[in-house]
């Protein structure tokens, strides 16, 4: 349950959290050792032309006191100016959005499918806990998780893409994009293998939580009550057990959805799918602060939004949680 005043206050807190995030991000990034121009110049030249470094510092205002830079940064953010990438000279926001769009092609279906399948499998497995089918699935998941994700990804590429040639090795699309333009089906075809892999990793993660949660729920008295009413097993599972077992999943899954913004570096690397994850690591390596600030800003927004969403969702699922005057 949720009331309007509370929601307003809650949004106010979220705003405060956002300001703190922005501040922390700014100072952590700016106090991080190393800077872009030194990295860049030393990567292309065997000596460091100091005058070029100074010129860069001056152009980007990095020679001013940190607090002054912070004030300018906050003013710019408030006006919607996210700044320009040091590396590319391009405005940060469209750059992030472009990479994010590519990332979402894989991440959105993978996360949603991963959550849904993980919940269903975990619920089913927990419901049947101790049974042969449950143990088979449980042990499979243990083995699946015990082997590093990278290995599975490489094997999947090797078997399905290289040996069987069912899927492409990687990339966003076939080379035909150069002659006939972007074909959504082709992008989908390129995305299937990474989506499947990422989905199975997310499934494996959610499966455990859901299974444990379900095992805890099936011992509850109200499950016996439901059976005593004459409900069949499926109705007991889906109507009575699932909703209760979902409660611990709410926070976890909303944050998974929010985590989309950070991308998945290893999927992007293995499948040559340069999205937001590689953009972040690359910007971090090169100390491209405006890009990092933009990504973390977006991440803070998503996380704070996710927290709000998780609370609202939880209060809808569990009437005992009352958001507001208690």
């Amino acid at each position: 349950m949720i009331d309007g005043h509370y929601l307003l206050r809650r949004i106010g807190y979220s705003g405060a959290a956002f300001v703190i995030c922005v501040t922390l991000t700014f100072f952590i990034l700016h106090l991080m050792p190393g800077d872009y121009i030194t990295n860049y110049l030393l990567s292309i030249s065997n000596y460091l032309p100091q005058e070029a470094v100074d010129q860069f510092y001056q152009q980007y205002g990095l020679d001013r006191p940190l607090w002054e830079q912070y004030v300018i940064y906050v003013c710019n953010i408030l006006q919607g100016h996210w700044g320009y990438s040091y590396q590319y000279g391009l405005p940060v926001f469209p750059m992030i959005m472009q990479k994010l769009t590519w990332s979402l092609v894989i991440l959105l279906p993978a996360v949603l499918l991963g959550i849904a399948i993980g919940i269903v499998l975990g619920a089913w497995s927990g419901w049947k806990s101790g049974g042969k089918k449950d143990l088979a699935l449980f042990n499979f998941m243990i083995v699946f998780r015990a082997i590093p994700e990278f290995w599975w990804a490489i094997m999947a590429v090797w078997v399905f893409a290289f040996s069987l040639q069912w899927f492409p090795l990687g990339g966003f699309t076939s080379i035909s994009v150069l002659s006939s333009g972007l074909n959504p089906w082709d992008v989908l075809y390129h995305a299937i293998l990474p989506i499947c892999l990422l989905t199975s990793f997310i499934v494996a993660g959610n499966y455990y939580v859901m299974r444990n949660s379900m095992i805890a729920v099936i011992g509850e008295d109200y499950i016996t009550t439901a059976r005593a009413k004459g409900l069949d097993e499926r109705a007991v599972l889906w109507r009575h057990a699932l909703k209760n077992a979902l409660l611990p999943m709410v926070t976890m899954t909303t944050f998974q959805v929010a985590g989309i913004i950070m991308g998945s570096v290893f999927i992007e690397t293995v499948f040559s799918w340069p999205g937001i994850g590689l953009l972040t690591t690359d910007a971090l390596r090169m100390r491209d602060l405006p890009i990092l600030e933009g990504i973390f800003l977006l991440d803070a927004l998503m996380t704070i939004g996710a927290m709000l969403a998780a609370d609202i969702l939880a209060s809808h699922l569990d009437p005992r949680i009352r958001m507001g005057d208690q």
């Binding site: 490489i154 590429v157 090797w158 893409a161 290289f162 040639q165 090795l169 990687g170 990339g171 080379i175 150069l178 992007e268 690397t269 293995v270 040559s272 799918w273 340069p274 590689l278």
Partner: peptide, 20 residues
Amino acid sequence: VVLKVITNPDSQVLALKNGE
């Protein structure tokens, strides 16, 4: 000349074998 992004060195070799 077409430059094709293949981020993983192992995949580059597979792509060569494949003729990509």
